[in-house]
Simulated scan of single mutants.
Amino acid sequence: MQALLNAIATMALPTDAQRVFHGRGGLFPGCEQWALDAFPPVLVLTSFQAVSDDELATIGVALSTRWAQISPDQPLNWVFQCRAEGHLETRLMSGEVPDPHVVTEKGSSFRVHVLKGQNHGLFLDMAEGREWVRRMVRNYGADQPRLKVLNLFAYTCAFSVVALQAGAKQVVNVDMSHGAMAIGQQNHPLNGITTGATFLMHDIFKTWGKITRGGPYGLVIVDPPSYQKGSFVATKDYAKLMRRLPELLAPGGYALLCLNAPELGLDFLQDQMKELAPELKFVERVANPVVFADVSPERSLKVLAYQMPSLPASVEHAA
């Protein structure tokens, strides 16, 4: 636990939503169970193993001590969540959680819910993926039509928010979770976005006709759960998405493929893309936030960018 306590003792006052300590990456032996996140003005401590009251008390003292140093005029608000099988719980340990609870990330605002469920409404490890989308949309050719984006497994639509803020013409968000999409619909006006976003609350695999008719898209974002019974299993369902990419993408368009499954390495995505969508060229792996460093890059979140070839100049001119 000492590495976690050291991180608490040196943490700065968080303003944006961010991870403070990432034991899951395996770089701090003995602390693999711990994660500490900031969803200002709330800190969320997560353990993936059962925890004793003494351990929680020790961490609570460390948090209180550091908070008194970096924010002496504000109360400490912190939540503990245990994700160990048979010990699932979420507990408010000190202070309170705002309702509604809105956090920021690089100028964008998002609603979160740290007391309900295991997913809080914003995946912090995808911060650099969202920044990649922001840059890609901003840098899209000025001589091209404004970008149309397809956001598959949209969850609370954070990708949609940053794409529209960066200048995208339209984002089609698709997700079968009505609860997540309801939050996504709230996130857009929260950022002053009143047009450009479409929300399809459907099973993606039963909505291909409508999705395809809305294209072609300059950017397709694929960010599925690695395993969600009855919805998506990466080992059998990701291939179905890859096969569709060539017909969904405009010439020169990009696909951003995301996968958070420690048991599946880069080759899971890359080998299948070579086989199922060979037209697309691998561009880069988007780096994860530094705080999410992992002893094995193969185990950590994978975010890969691919691009469709552009039309030859003569064809573009004829069009």
Score class of each variant (00 low, 15 high):
residue 98 P to S: 10
residue 38 A to C: 08
residue 14 P to C: 10
residue 109 S to M: 06
residue 27 L to M: 15
residue 131 E to I: 09
residue 134 R to V: 08
residue 251 P to K: 01
residue 313 A to Y: 03
residue 60 G to A: 01
residue 237 D to Q: 03
residue 248 L to E: 09
residue 68 A to C: 06
residue 255 A to C: 05
residue 107 G to I: 02
residue 172 V to F: 02
residue 10 T to G: 06
residue 47 S to V: 07
residue 7 A to Y: 04
residue 270 Q to Y: 06
residue 154 A to H: 06
residue 242 M to C: 08
residue 281 K to N: 07
residue 174 V to N: 01
residue 19 R to T: 03
residue 105 E to M: 05
residue 87 H to Q: 13
residue 117 G to W: 06
residue 148 K to S: 15
residue 24 R to D: 10
residue 229 K to V: 02
residue 140 Y to D: 13
residue 12 A to E: 15
residue 101 H to Y: 06
residue 224 P to R: 02
residue 29 P to N: 10
residue 24 R to Y: 05
residue 60 G to C: 01
residue 314 S to I: 11
residue 150 L to V: 09
residue 230 G to L: 05
residue 162 V to Q: 05
residue 182 A to K: 15
residue 20 V to I: 15
residue 218 G to I: 04
residue 231 S to G: 03
residue 207 T to L: 06
residue 83 R to G: 01
residue 68 A to S: 13
residue 109 S to I: 03
residue 287 A to W: 02
residue 307 Q to F: 00
residue 200 L to C: 12
residue 158 A to P: 10
residue 44 V to L: 15
residue 252 G to I: 05
residue 229 K to Q: 14
residue 170 Q to Y: 08
residue 25 G to I: 11
residue 29 P to G: 09
residue 205 F to N: 09
residue 36 L to G: 11
residue 282 F to T: 05
residue 107 G to S: 09
residue 122 L to M: 00
residue 236 K to H: 07
residue 284 E to W: 03
residue 309 P to K: 00
residue 236 K to N: 06
residue 155 Y to C: 02
residue 260 N to C: 10
residue 314 S to Q: 15
residue 59 I to S: 09
residue 114 V to Q: 09
residue 302 K to S: 00
residue 216 P to G: 12
residue 247 E to N: 13
residue 120 H to N: 06
residue 106 K to P: 02
residue 130 R to A: 02
residue 306 Y to R: 00
residue 25 G to P: 12
residue 3 A to E: 07
residue 51 V to H: 04
residue 314 S to E: 04
residue 95 G to S: 10
residue 154 A to V: 09
residue 263 E to D: 13
residue 99 D to A: 08
residue 135 R to E: 15
residue 318 A to N: 13
residue 208 W to M: 12
residue 14 P to R: 04
residue 39 F to Q: 12
residue 78 W to G: 00
residue 65 T to Q: 15
residue 162 V to E: 09
residue 119 N to I: 01
residue 67 W to L: 01
residue 22 H to E: 10
residue 81 Q to H: 03
residue 282 F to I: 10
residue 102 V to G: 07
residue 282 F to K: 11
residue 297 P to N: 08
residue 228 Q to N: 11
residue 57 A to Q: 14
residue 191 N to W: 03
residue 85 E to P: 04
residue 185 Q to A: 10
residue 128 E to Y: 07
residue 216 P to A: 13
residue 83 R to P: 00
residue 62 A to S: 14
residue 74 Q to K: 11
residue 294 D to V: 00
residue 17 A to T: 11
residue 311 L to P: 02
residue 286 V to Y: 02
residue 47 S to H: 06
residue 76 L to R: 05
residue 82 C to V: 04
residue 197 A to S: 14
residue 87 H to A: 15
residue 72 P to R: 07
residue 99 D to V: 06
residue 150 L to H: 08
residue 11 M to E: 12
residue 46 T to V: 13
residue 183 I to M: 11
residue 231 S to I: 15
residue 4 L to C: 05
residue 96 E to T: 14
residue 207 T to I: 03
residue 12 A to P: 05
residue 118 Q to G: 02
residue 287 A to N: 11
residue 67 W to E: 00
residue 94 S to I: 04
residue 49 Q to M: 10
residue 290 V to S: 13
residue 279 E to F: 04
residue 236 K to F: 02
residue 197 A to F: 06
residue 201 M to R: 14
residue 263 E to N: 12
residue 135 R to Q: 15
